[in-house]
Design a protein around this nucleic acid. Structure first.
Lengths: 139, 139
DNA sequence: CGGTATCCCAGCTGATACTG
DNA sequence: CAGTATCAGCTGGGATACCG
């Protein structure tokens, strides 16, 4: 093994070592990634990272989401321990969602990915257009 | 606004400002996130970040993936400009996939998320078990 | 080896209507 | 306000068979 190889193995995380172990761990790993990547989770974690919000506020900020999916996604995030739900016994009812410490810790790498997506969306849109326009690269 | 609040607004990215602008940009943003979060993309980007691999190697390393989904996911990543495909006109055929600079740039935040997932999988598994076991938090 | 074509089902998602 | 219930459509993704 080269010096560079050894240094890489010390400093850089390796994807293979994260998901290759046993099938159960790999499934857990993937289930977390797919939770992160589903249609609304990232956006909701990002929203709640900035402060607690109620159901309707989240619905208004997250344009396009239906009440059903908002409730469903929040239940998933709550199940994973990423958000907390607080119900106020009032009329009209008030429910506030807030990020847990675990949720906040996820928000850090999440926001890095979101920043990447934001920074490269024009480039990716261009790549997609070029790919879709050309039947194959050589012709 | 507090000092902390002002510093946060300068230094921290805000999710709302990334996806709230116009619907088209928001859709692009979400399409990138869902690409990142789909069942296999993250794993493949991670694998290829460590070096070029051929189709069969990827298939073997990424346990559980079908040929169909491997091909499909690689096409998507190629379309986005995240991976490159090189075909060698040999018998038997050989096709090598490698990460592009754009793909490598994505690998950085991707690996951070993957590390987070790896580090917290036990905690999340525990949270899920507890959530599933208890009908409601008070009872 | 490195795919594609086809079939098929589970589950995600939206729309609508209803409730405490 | 903050949901749930139900129906229905679409898509993701696996199994299998086949091709260059």
């Amino acid at each position: 093994m080269t010096i560079e190889g050894r240094m890489a193995s010390i400093h850089e995380p390796r994807m293979h070592s994260m998901c290759g172990h046993d099938p159960q761990e790999a499934e857990m790993f993937r289930s977390i990634l797919s939770r992160i990547g589903d249609k609304w989770s990232v956006m909701l974690v990002g929203m709640l990272h900035e402060g607690p919000l109620r159901f309707t506020e989240l619905k208004q900020m997250t344009s396009g989401i239906s009440a059903k999916m908002l409730a469903h996604t929040l239940r998933q995030l709550e199940r994973d321990g990423l958000v907390e739900r607080e119900i106020f016994a009032e009329i009209p009812p008030r429910v506030v969602y807030r990020s847990t410490p675990l949720g906040k810790s996820l928000a850090v790498p999440i926001m890095a990915v979101a920043e990447w997506a934001s920074a490269h969306q024009a480039e990716i849109a261009g790549n997609r257009d070029r790919y879709d326009a050309v039947p194959d690269s050589g012709a």
